[in-house]
Write a protein that binds this DNA or RNA. Structure first.
Lengths: 157, 157
DNA sequence: AGGCTGGCTATACTTAACTCAAGTCTGATC
DNA sequence: GATCAGACTTGAGTTAAGTATAGCCAGCCT
């Protein structure tokens, strides 16, 4: 189950999982990213769909822009003044795997009896999509088949 | 990019991503699960490696046990009394994909120049492992190739 | 010129996850 | 029987993310 050799030597603070969670910021920030994947772009829609106040949404959106997960783009609806919309950057888009993994897990263990609220499918072939862990040789692997070693950025030499 | 049809109709509160985050609880709870994947089992090791106080660790561990992500098992070292250790359940183990996805993303965008702190490899073939999104037909897909529809548990009929 | 609307900003408060420091309970060992 | 270490528990205080409410500002419209 991915037991790490020399585990006792390296500290938790250069862990990429912790760094990723820190960078995203908060639960509501992740939910805003989920919304961005679903196509949400406007300020008030983010606030409403995530279920937080506009004050909180403004703080989260600014932080996500500052950190390069979203970017502001001017847009203009007819008869309206120019406004800003929020779009995923590549950095933000690359969190897709993590969001799908969380969604899969939630669907499996926490979904209502009726089934999941959202179904993801491959646009080209229509088949359902899921997050998996695979090795470079193409094998699908589980936690038990995985081995962890200290990498170059580890404290252990 | 996974735009959801009829998005305006369904509320955020039956979202599996939100439910999953709620179930895991906190950032430090996720980091404890990461430790569990690395082989950590004992109370004081969880606290030390995650970098939180024993008080906080006790709260998190109890909550993870209550929610079925970890289970307590008695163990006995020679010359010591019986104690409890904490092991991943299947439910906890199934969060592996999400953890690997977050680690991959952190490695890509936030790792120190030297490289990531931990390398995961397939135990059988030695190749590095990563989280991906694939469809049931076996195609690897990105956010852009994905389509979202309301599922059976959605508020929209 | 003045109102309206969307997108914020400001202030005060609440809550939850933490911290630090101290104390408790258990049971093997002396 | 007293001691000690490991595994918690308790209580007080801190911080950060949220809330509710209010106000501000730009600029299209009449």
């Amino acid at each position: 189950m991915a037991e790490l050799t020399e585990r006792h030597l390296w500290p938790a603070d250069n862990c990429s999982v912790a760094a990723a969670l820190e960078e995203v910021g908060t639960r509501s920030a992740l939910l805003m990213l989920r919304e961005a994947f679903y196509g949400t772009r406007r300020f008030d829609e983010f606030a409403r769909r995530v279920g937080i106040t506009d004050a909180a949404a403004a703080t989260r959106l600014s932080q996500l822009v500052d950190r390069g997960l979203l970017e502001r783009r001017p847009y203009r609806e007819p008869g309206q003044r120019t406004r800003q919309e929020y779009r995923l950057t590549q950095k933000g888009r690359d969190l897709f795997v993590a969001l799908v993994a969380l969604m899969d897990w939630g669907d499996r263990y926490l979904a209502p009896a009726a089934g999941p609220a959202v179904l993801l499918s491959h646009r080209d072939c229509g088949a359902p999509v899921h997050a998996t862990v695979v090795c470079a040789a193409g094998h699908e692997v589980t936690a038990r088949d995985t081995h962890a070693d200290p990498g170059p950025g580890s404290a252990v030499g």
